[in-house]
Design a protein around this nucleic acid. Sequence first.
DNA 1: CCGCATCCCGCGGGATACTG
DNA 2: CAGTATCCCGCGGGATGCGG
Lengths: 136, 136
Amino acid sequence: MTATDGETAPGYASSTCRVRAVLDRVGDKWSIYVVDRLGGGQLRFSELLRGIDGITARMLTVTLRGLERDGILTRTVHAAVPPRVDYALTPLGETLREAIGQLVSWADSHLPEIEEARAAYDGRADEPACPEAAAG
Amino acid sequence: MTATDGETAPGYASSTCRVRAVLDRVGDKWSIYVVDRLGGGQLRFSELLRGIDGITARMLTVTLRGLERDGILTRTVHAAVPPRVDYALTPLGETLREAIGQLVSWADSHLPEIEEARAAYDGRADEPACPEAAAG
DNA sequence: CCGCATCCCGCGGGATACTG
DNA sequence: CAGTATCCCGCGGGATGCGG
């Protein structure tokens, strides 16, 4: 099992560029947080807006439209005044949420390791390998 | 279990903005493909370059540096001529690869649904809901 | 309250050319 | 072969203002 054979990658590698189209949605700045938030049940626009730190109304709209287009969530408009719109995950969206959850919890649980690694790398880049040794 | 309580999201929600720093790495255009490729064992620069469709040398370098900084992979330089550099996943990188694999296979297996949903949505947007009905 | 339109800026990232 | 430096363009996305 060396890396010298031409076809190392199996399975989904064949549809890489199509998968890209899907992962781009996940890769955009806000989708994963929207999906994550909706895991607890349907929420209205303003709830999402307040629940996701740093997002603007514009980006929330754009993100929601994208997810709706992909069949990840549904948009329910209540025509009455005051206007009210609810968003909820579809079954497909629920499965995505699970996959995302894996990644988010990975990120969360390995945060310390990663921050350590970054500190070590950055230190290596423009500082002596042993700051305390240099101080002596 | 309504969505009316203030604290719907448990666990990792508390460190959202730190998690962001990690997910941004996953979110960038090429990291997941590099990590995925390296799953089969160490590869040299040019092998990655040829193995990942559409990536440029510049972006491969940038991506590899970022992943190295995060402790996801290691960079091994063979000083001899011709120059040769090998990249391999760290144990941490392996765990990331598993999480990514979940997502990639999700994307792969749900591609048809998503493309259907997109087609339906786009059709709805600027075409009659029932093209064949409109034709009659 | 919901959310679209417009303007505008920063940066991701592609092309190209050069070094060790 | 591996990597760096420069230029440059497109677009993600923030701020603001208006319409339903």
